[in-house]
Every structure is written in C-alpha cells, then in structure tokens.
C-alpha cells in the first residue's frame, strides 16, 4: 500500500470522524447528566437535511450550519420534554424520536436529493502548502475540523473545571443529591440536552455540508448509534472520545480503500467492518473494567413532594 493510500485513509478518517466526534461529545454531555439519547440518529438526520436544505436555498454554508445546529438543539428539546417533563422511558422515547427524525428528514430533504451546494471553504494545514498538490489536497480542512479537538478539550474543561459541569455530573450520578445541593435537576438535564443537541447538529452539519456535500435519505447510516457506543468506549470522557472517533472512522476509510483497490471480498462484508469493530469494542470493554458510567444513567428523576 502506497504512502499516498495511507495518507488518504488518514485524511478520510479525519473527515468522517469529525461529525462523529461532535455527536459523541454531545452524547457524553447528555449521558453525564443521566440521559441516554437513542434518538440521536433522528436528531442527526433532521439537522443534516435541514442544514443541507438551507445551504442549498440560501447559498451560504454558514447559514446551513446555523440551521443544523438549531435543529439539533430543538430536536433534543422535544426528546427532553418526553423524558424529563413527561417522565417517559428514555429508551422508548429515544427510538420514537429516531423514527420521527428519519421520516421528517426524508420529507425535508426530498427535493434536495442529488443537489449540489457551495461547500464549506477548506484551508491547507499551515506548513504543508509547499508539498505537492496530491498531498496537500489531502490535508485541506474546513474550520469545523480545526475546531473539533479544541471543542473536546472545552467540553472536558466544562465538565471537570466548572460549577456547571460539577452540577451536571452530580445530576447524572444522583439527582436527589444534586437537588439537595440546591440545584434543579430537571433544568440541568434540559441544559445538557440542549448543549448535546447543538453539538449533534454541528456534527450533522459537518457530515452533509462539509464532508459528503450531498443529501440522501438515511445518509447518517447509524452514526447516531455509533456515537452512543463510542461514549461507552471512551468511558464517558470527552478526551478519550477523540481517539474513539478517529479509530472508528479509520475503519470506515480503510474499508472504502479496500473496496476501491478491488479486494476480492464482497463489498457488503467490507461495509460491516466498522460495525464489527464496534461490537468488538463493546465485547472487550463490556463489563470487565472499572465501570465509570454515571450511576443514574437512564433513570427518571421524579422530584420530591
């Protein structure tokens, strides 16, 4: 395998991993506050379709990103209303939101299938501009890629070094304790879902506006669920999520490379590699380590008399 191919895998992993990492960071925040958002797939789809539609209609990828981000926040608020205010089961609500988002995004994106958009401008990594074009073109990134690792650090800082983060983690561990400390667990959970939704929207925007630059039905192909698995892989730690998203995306890029290089394996089988990897990770990471899942993950907070 040539150097170029390897670099191609890396570049492609960075591209596809960015949306995954934003989404995973959002889910880390949701779960740190005690909420499992299985509706993430639907949130991504609605954000992606709306972001793409707005970009196409207005011609501005930035307005598209804004629309996607707001849509993500709004979708998570719908989910939040179900699981926080109405105290519905988180898993059932998540699946409902997923299917709802699937249908809604198909409707929004229907007339945009196959459309072409103004992509997000890309910048060559500083210092690499002198390389031959074949190389430097692999390392031309948009601003969302440049921002994703600082974002992970920012989320870590928010969770571990701010009052807000301490309260949020407390709600995920024991909402009654958080309440006893004078906090409002329901409000904090809404806040967590809002931030999580904005981040998921950012991920969806990157996927459709910067990476694929196209909309097709169910284009997220399970990324929402992969993000949920990555949260477990990363042990609910935003910094470890960076590695998780990169490894998973490298697997995606690698199997694409195998396919394009004409490997004598069914492409359907190759397509499953990233998901096999996810299953493997869950098996290996499953129950034999010190668990650091938030203690009230998935529990409904009922409040007090």
């Amino acid at each position: 395998m040539s150097l170029l191919a390897v670099l191609g895998v890396i570049s492609s992993a960075i591209y596809s991993g960015t949306s995954l990492l934003y989404t995973t960071l959002g889910e880390v925040i949701d779960e740190r506050a005690g909420i499992v958002n299985l509706g993430l797939e639907g949130v991504l789809l609605v954000s992606a379709s709306l972001g793409f539609a707005v970009t196409k209609t207005t011609g501005s990828p930035y307005l598209g990103i804004l629309a996607a981000v707001l849509a993500g926040g709004l979708m998570n608020m719908v989910f939040g209303y179900l699981v926080i205010t109405r105290q519905a089961n988180q898993l059932a609500s998540g699946l409902a939101v997923m299917f709802f988002g699937y249908g809604l995004s198909a409707l929004i994106g229907k007339s945009f299938v196959g459309a072409k958009i103004n992509p997000l401008p890309r910048y060559v990594l500083p210092g690499l501009s002198r390389l031959p074009l074949v190389f430097s073109s692999l390392f031309k990134f948009d601003f969302l890629i440049f921002l994703v690792v600082p974002m992970a650090v920012l989320i870590w800082w928010l969770l571990y070094r701010t009052r807000w983060g301490l309260g949020l983690r407390a709600v995920g561990e024991n909402a009654d304790t958080a309440f006893a400390s004078g906090r409002n667990p329901k409000r904090i959970r809404y806040q967590a879902l809002l931030v999580g939704g904005l981040l998921a929207g950012l991920g969806a925007a990157h996927l459709t506006i910067a990476y694929t630059m196209a909309w097709s039905e169910y284009m997220t192909a399970g990324r929402g669920f992969i993000a949920v698995a990555l949260v477990i892989f990363s042990n609910w730690d935003p910094l470890r999520a960076i590695a998780g998203a990169l490894i998973f995306s490298a697997a995606v890029a690698f199997q694409l490379l195998l396919q394009s290089s004409g490997a004598q394996v069914s492409p359907f089988l190759l397509n499953t590699i990233p998901y096999l990897l996810t299953i493997l990770v869950l098996i290996v990471w499953g129950g034999n380590r010190k668990q650091s899942a938030p203690a009230s993950l998935g529990r409904i907070y009922l409040g007090s008399e």
């Binding site: 407390a170 561990e173 024991n174 958080a178 650091s292 203690a295």
Partner: peptide, 15 residues
C-alpha cells in the same frame, strides 16, 4: 448523600 464516583473535594464543592 455523597456521590461515590466523585472525590471528597468534588462532593464538598457541590455544596
């Protein structure tokens, strides 16, 4: 009313 996964300092800071 302590959170087992938190350090002593974090538990105290919460209050």
């Amino acid at each position: 009313n302590l959170i087992p996964a938190f350090s002593v300092a974090e538990n105290i800071a919460l209050f």
